[in-house]
Design a protein around this nucleic acid. Sequence first.
DNA 1: AAACTATTTAAGAATTATTATTACCTAATA
DNA 2: TATTAGGTAATAATAATTCTTAAATAGTTT
Lengths: 156, 156
Amino acid sequence: MYIHEKSLRTIIDALRKKGYKATPQRIAICKYVLQDTTHPSAKIVYQRVRKEYPTISLATVYQTLKVLKELNLIQELPFSKRETRFDPNVNPHINMVCLKCGKIVDINFPEADSLLKQISESTRFRITGQRIDIYGFCEVCGQFSISIAKNKEKML
Amino acid sequence: MYIHEKSLRTIIDALRKKGYKATPQRIAICKYVLQDTTHPSAKIVYQRVRKEYPTISLATVYQTLKVLKELNLIQELPFSKRETRFDPNVNPHINMVCLKCGKIVDINFPEADSLLKQISESTRFRITGQRIDIYGFCEVCGQFSISIAKNKEKML
DNA sequence: AAACTATTTAAGAATTATTATTACCTAATA
DNA sequence: TATTAGGTAATAATAATTCTTAAATAGTTT
Ligand SMILES: [Mn+2]
Ligand SMILES: [Mn+2]
Ligand SMILES: [Zn+2]
Ligand SMILES: [Zn+2]
């Protein structure tokens, strides 16, 4: 159940509840990013939202993404290749990350909840979030990577 | 079983096998980073190795860390706060990451192997690595964070 | 042991994702 | 509609990482 399944009203209320103004820019960015499950980068979010708001700035995108993270509506996923990607799925799940084409797809991991509960009990660690990535080569990149791919063209 | 349990000879051989020269700088960096389980940043590695090699440069540290990653002897762990940390434990395990003090400790996750095997079979994804992080507040930071910590002073 | 040569190093410059600054602008409210 | 606290857009600043290059050297060959 992502926020993007909820109404515009819900987004506005979530912002206001934390004292943030519901500006058109923020609403546009929220609507976009909460609905894109491809784990877009800030630049991609910027390019997409720009179509609707041509005057928007990249700094506003970054600042809104930070707000969304603070509201726990998205998760930040930094990668080696210096490009952070953003994920509207904040529930425990696995990101399958292709090192060749950069595609990231979610897969379910129902056992995560009990695992986390167990860990929080056995350690004295107060858990607030998690990240589970699996790296490798997706189906379409897998074949090529055997013969062609070297470390040079890895995307992440 | 980390490499640091092995001999100097083993490190040198690992480098040479891939066509890398075993320079004193590289050996010093390898010896240090393969034995530090606190997940140090590049800067920390630099500061530590500097004590033995005062003329070493940060660029050399970065380049050697890249080599070690290529040899699959360490893992790179980028975080939100723009400071990548390095982990000599490349086997599937869980990183418990404290958002207040930045401490990262490994905990075992024996079920990971079968989970990964199962996923690689059910998807057509060729797995080459993984990363499992749990974020929150460690035992010593946990209490304070209730009253003091805001998002401002988060380390990662 | 000296010479050879492809790599590597160190220093500094360059790159680039992200953050800070600031002068207008606007959403929310009365 | 006026007030105002806070937001936006443009730009500059920051800083982690990478690139460039001349000098040094590891590994090899004579
Ligand atoms: Mn995801
Ligand atoms: Mn670890
Ligand atoms: Zn792919
Ligand atoms: Zn802590």
